[in-house]
Simulated assay, not measured.
Amino acid sequence: MEDLQQQLGVRFTDDGLLTRAFVHRSFIHEHPERSGIRESNERLEFLGDAVLNFLTASWLYERFPERTEGELTHLRAALVKTKTLAGFSRELDLSRHIKISRGEDTPIARNRSALLADVFEALLGAIFLDQGLDAVRAFVSPFLERHIEAVLNGTAEIDYRTKLQEQAQSIFNYTPTYRMVAVAGPDHEREFTMEVLINDERYGVGVGLSKQSAAQAAAKAALTRIQEPDESPADMR
């Protein structure tokens, strides 16, 4: 989990908490004798859900002093719903760390939105127990800040990466992979270029001011190409 801690920017005092955040209950049932892993992530998920709801409400209260209680409730629901949290997990590529039973361990199962949302909440619960509330706030606030604009603009529902993943698995039986191909511009104004591949074929290229937005643009381009099959992936090379 060393690489994951570096990626998250969180150094755990108790590595066991981080490990437990990724243990699905099916893994416990399949490996009851596994040393050191005796509990699934469900209790951490319960705790993380409560912490996330509180921090999101607090963040919205400070961020939008002019909004009514009803408006804030609507915004919070959009920020903490399953689809949104699953998107946060995909940004961090958390699915590859999940411990799940062999019978359920498929690319489709690992990328279920419900599973990914649960893991994100369990991770927040683990950070809370290990580092405290301020550490969770520091970790989750950038996600809220990035996503709130999509919510306000009415584009939060358009998650091209999720849509592409569903179509790619259904049509090609492959999960899309993303690769950064270029970075340009000064440090304060970076521009990223990402490509998306399906079975090692490039299906889309996107440019954005963050890796996430560039990947979304690449996924959108790939969806267009799949829906317009006259132009083959090879034409993009």
Score class of each variant (00 low, 15 high):
Glu30Arg: 01
Ala109Val: 14
Pro32Asp: 11
Phe27His: 00
Pro107Val: 00
Leu44Thr: 00
Arg38Gly: 13
Glu42Ile: 13
Ile98Met: 14
Leu55Gln: 01
Glu62His: 07
Phe46Thr: 11
Ser113Met: 14
Glu104Phe: 10
Arg76Phe: 00
Gly70Leu: 12
Ile100Ala: 13
Phe128Asn: 09
Leu75Pro: 02
Leu79Asn: 02
Leu72Cys: 09
Ala122Arg: 08
Gly48Met: 06
Asn53Trp: 00
Asp105Met: 07
Gly70Cys: 11
Val51Ile: 12
Thr84Ile: 10
Leu75Gln: 03
Ala109Leu: 12
Thr68Ser: 02
Arg90Asn: 14
Ala117Asp: 06
Arg34Phe: 04
Arg96Ser: 11
Asn53Asp: 06
Leu75Ile: 06
Leu85Pro: 02
Phe64Glu: 04
Leu44Trp: 01
Ala78Arg: 04
Ile37Lys: 03
Leu116Trp: 02
Ser35Lys: 15
Glu33Val: 12
His97Leu: 12
Ile98Glu: 05
Thr82Gly: 12
Val80Ile: 15
Ile100Gln: 08
Ala86Tyr: 06
Ala57Cys: 00
Leu79Met: 01
Leu129Trp: 05
Phe128Glu: 10
Glu39Arg: 12
Glu33Lys: 10
Arg110Ser: 14
Arg63Val: 08
Arg43Cys: 10
Arg63Tyr: 02
Pro65Asn: 03
Thr73His: 01
Thr68Arg: 07
Glu66Pro: 07
Asp105Tyr: 04
Arg102Phe: 12
Leu92Pro: 03
Arg110Tyr: 15
Arg38Tyr: 07
Ile108Trp: 03
Ser26Lys: 09
Arg76Leu: 00
Ile28Phe: 01
Arg112Asp: 12
Ser26Ala: 11
Glu62Ala: 13
Thr73Leu: 01
Phe46Tyr: 15
Thr82Ser: 15
Pro107Asn: 06
Ile37Val: 05
Asn111Val: 14
Leu123Lys: 08
Leu72Ala: 07
His31Tyr: 04
Arg34Leu: 09
Ser101Glu: 05
Ser58Phe: 09
Pro107Gln: 08
Ala126Tyr: 04
Leu124Arg: 11
Ile127Phe: 01
His97Gln: 12
Glu45Phe: 08
Leu44His: 05
Glu121Arg: 14
